[in-house]
Design a protein around this nucleic acid. Sequence first.
DNA 1: TTAAAATCTATAAAAACGATAGGGTAATAG
DNA 2: CTATTACCCTATCGTTTTTATAGATTTTAA
Lengths: 137, 137
Amino acid sequence: MMLSKKTKYGLKALTYLASVDSKEPVQIAEIAKHENISQKFLESILLTLRRNGFLGSKKGKGGGYYLIKEPKDIVMTAVIRVLEGPIAMVPCVSLNFYEKCDDCPDEHECSVNKLMLQVRDSALKVYRNNTLADLIS
Amino acid sequence: MMLSKKTKYGLKALTYLASVDSKEPVQIAEIAKHENISQKFLESILLTLRRNGFLGSKKGKGGGYYLIKEPKDIVMTAVIRVLEGPIAMVPCVSLNFYEKCDDCPDEHECSVNKLMLQVRDSALKVYRNNTLADLIS
DNA sequence: TTAAAATCTATAAAAACGATAGGGTAATAG
DNA sequence: CTATTACCCTATCGTTTTTATAGATTTTAA
């Protein structure tokens, strides 16, 4: 139920890149230092963010990472799903990662399902309502 | 971010005990079988639920576990906190388990804090709004 | 009083996951 | 060419989760 450091660091990195606001590449080392993150760990995180269309990168001298979209167009639902995985706390209430439970013959009779469906909806509402721009101001 | 099986099984056990509705003790084996749970694992879960005032138990022949309160008086906030731990996804937004982040010089400037505070509030609202009775009907 | 039924307790094995580090490759600017 | 920087693969360490093992203790029925 804890937020992984991967997600935490990823969010912080995105925030930093958004605050810099120029489209100039920012080096991993600079982000890592400014946000107190293990550089190697951050490396892999930025890579997934790039592969999923949030960041662009440039190799070589003067290279680094940069936002590929406007902060106001980066919605938290997308970020969370890429970094953390499903928003739902049980697969049987997940929109994008649905899976039936092994136990539990009938979902509609399941108390866990009933409760976690509400939790998912409420979390979804928050994530949909927040863009990267909202987290900076 | 996933719900632990401990919590899932605990909720299912509580639901089962509430559905039986008599104050007669129900044996661990019966609950385990009905809900497809490893009996030994369930044993330890029921123990914590008893220690935290949700269940009573009776030893010996004809013994077992039973609800100690009315289902409508068992609020999910309490159950989740006992089984799963903090409701917040980062310690720095937790009401009952607050802890400052090592990194992050100022919480009020932190984008993660800002987002997760909203998530916590929305989850809390759901848990406060659901009792065991609500999950059965 | 005896035996059975059941909870209680502790421990630890096994598996999964998270976080981090190391080292090498590829691209780019000067 | 050379320095710099992103890219990528792999291994490791530590923690948590889940399950299993073994036995002690308490209660009840007969």
